[in-house]
Amino acid sequence: MTTTALDRPAVSTRPAAVLLGLVRIVFGWVMLWAGLDKVFGLGFATPAERSVLSGVSPTKGYLGNLDGPAAAVMGPLAGNVVVDVLFVGGLVLGGLALLLGVATRVAGIGAALIFAPLWFTSLPLANNPVVDQHLVYVLVGLLLAFTPSGTALGLGAVWARLPFVRDHAWLR
């Protein structure tokens, strides 16, 4: 029987698995930190007076001030409570899941769904005509979603053995 690259395991060497685990952890921290900063206003990207706990929408300032091609599509979502909860909840819960190596499929796809619109709203890009960090984050999220990224340096193997997760493969 002939095998192709698609038939082989996604990560076949220990160094590659460890690097994939490290990428997952670092990306999980990027997401978790961004979410926590928006909620608590830790003074990095979000000052305390602009935090969710101060009653400020995490999407209103950014989406409400768009002027590129995405303004007509994304602008009306500014300050929408559902969008705010999905955005911050996705950052915090997705980041935590990636840090732990659990539910990496859901967290990776969720990350792509968070960062793809951010890439779109950044158009036209200032430093590169096509690629910025948001597009890289989309690709990293998808990579983590469709590889066994949670098993190296994470709880993914333990998570996958849980009966509910075993019965619902999309939770892996």
Rank of each mutant, 00 (worst) to 15 (best):
N128R: 00
L125W: 07
S149Y: 06
L143I: 13
G90Y: 10
V73P: 00
R24S: 08
G43W: 10
A16D: 06
G110Y: 11
V23Y: 01
L63A: 05
R8D: 06
P9D: 06
G64Y: 09
R166D: 14
M1V: 12
R14I: 14
F146S: 09
T147M: 08
V23H: 00
V18F: 06
P117H: 10
Y62K: 11
G79M: 11
R166P: 01
R8F: 01
A72E: 15
A160R: 14
S12A: 15
N80R: 08
F164M: 10
G35D: 07
D132G: 13
T2N: 07
L143K: 00
L96H: 01
W33N: 10
L155Q: 10
L6G: 00
F40Q: 04
G108K: 08
G108N: 07
K38R: 13
T46Q: 07
H134T: 08
N127S: 14
G35L: 09
V81T: 14
V130C: 03
T4A: 05
W159K: 04
L93G: 00
S57M: 08
P58F: 12
T104L: 06
D37Y: 12
R24D: 07
L113E: 02
L139M: 14
P148E: 14
M31N: 13
A160E: 15
L100K: 05
V23Q: 00
L36G: 04
P148W: 05
T121R: 08
V73L: 15
G141V: 10
S57W: 13
K60P: 00
K60N: 10
V52N: 01
L139V: 14
V26Y: 08
W119C: 05
W119P: 03
G90P: 03
W119G: 05
P124I: 11
W159C: 03
N65A: 14
A78F: 07
P69W: 09
G64M: 08
A107H: 05
A10T: 02
